[in-house]
Design a protein around this nucleic acid. Structure first.
Length: 302
DNA sequence: CGGTTTTGACCGGCGC
DNA sequence: GCGCCGGTCAAAACCG
């Protein structure tokens, strides 16, 4: 992670004014992404995946964007970083949700559970050696990250999660929480942290693919239809980009539709209070203008 | 009482 | 080698 800066593109809503907001250089994103340190997670934009299978307008339509087709975008890539001038203003639009896809990454993921404090000397050494042998880095599960404006850290997404850790984030007063899908054998993980630059923004990062259906589906609750997609990146039958797209929409449509006074997905099903709260917030802030066109030349060598 | 959260310790990678 | 840091573990606390 020596040199991991990130490309960042910003497209603003036309209902916002001026271009000073348009200029990426107005954002001090050289190493941060709206207050998030993503240096350890190479990412590519959502649109990268959309190219070829879906265009930006389609998305806009899908989201029924009330405000034009432009939106806040940011892409983050660690391979080719142009440092946006560490700018000044981060006044920046505070009303936005942004989506990025973090693709794999060369970081390795440790899968094995090592005994905590070793003292079982016995095979300890051999274990270590095995590890050393396995020097090759495991490719990481695909990641998908997005920013959401919400007071709620852990956003409801239809799956059940168990928190397994929390860490202080460097340079941020807000901790990062780690969640694992509670479903057996499901290795999907989720990371949630709040921007220190704009505390109203929460970044959620999913990693891996569910090997099961969304529990909400089975229960037939509000999220059921919405989150019926079996997995975030699962199901090999359709192209990744489509899956991502579907899942992305699945995750945001309800919020966004409500924010536009549409009742598409939850018309008959009252949302749980915390979700209402969450969605209300989105509405108040005109959230979810995500997705981006942006062709960022980013090549991601895995 | 079983599942979840909290929280300090541990692990491994990385830079110096 | 050491320290930093992100990520994970797991025991204890918590909760419905």
């Amino acid at each position: 992670m020596a040199n991991e800066n990130h490309d960042l593109f910003y497209h603003h809503n036309n209902h916002h004014h001026d271009d000073d907001e348009l200029n990426p250089s107005n954002f001090s994103f050289s190493q941060n992404f709206q207050g998030f340190d993503l240096s350890t997670t190479p990412t590519t934009t959502f649109t990268d995946y959309l190219h070829g299978s879906m265009d930006y307008n389609t998305l806009s339509k899908a989201f029924d964007l009330s405000c034009s087709s432009s939106e806040v975008v940011s892409s983050i890539n660690d391979n080719n970083m142009k440092k946006s001038s560490a700018g000044d203003s981060e006044s920046s639009s505070s009303n936005e949700a942004e989506a990025v896809i973090e693709q794999d990454s060369t970081k390795m993921e440790k899968k094995d559970k090592h005994p905590k404090l070793g003292s079982q000397d016995g095979d300890e050494n051999s274990k270590k050696e095995n590890k050393v042998k396995k020097k090759e880095k495991k490719p990481k599960e695909p990641r998908f990250a997005f920013l959401t404006k919400s007071e709620i850290d852990h956003l409801e997404d239809g799956y059940r999660w168990r928190k397994y850790g929390q860490k202080a984030v460097k340079n941020s007063p807000y901790p990062r929480s780690y969640y694992r899908c509670t479903s057996q054998k499901c290795i999907v993980k989720k990371r949630v942290e709040r921007s220190y630059q704009d505390p109203s923004i929460v970044m959620t990062t999913y990693e891996g693919q569910h090997n099961h259906h969304c529990p909400a589906t089975l229960r037939g609750n509000a999220a059921s239809n919405i989150f019926s997609s079996p997995s975030l990146f699962g199901s090999n039958s359709i192209p990744l980009e489509q899956r991502i797209h579907q899942d992305f929409l699945a995750q945001f449509l309800p919020s966004y539709s409500q924010s536009n006074n549409h009742q598409m997905f939850h018309q008959n099903v009252p949302l749980p209070p915390h979700q209402q709260q969450q969605f209300q917030l989105l509405q108040d802030n005109g959230l979810l203008q995500d997705l981006l066109p942006s062709s960022f030349p980013g090549k991601q060598e895995q």
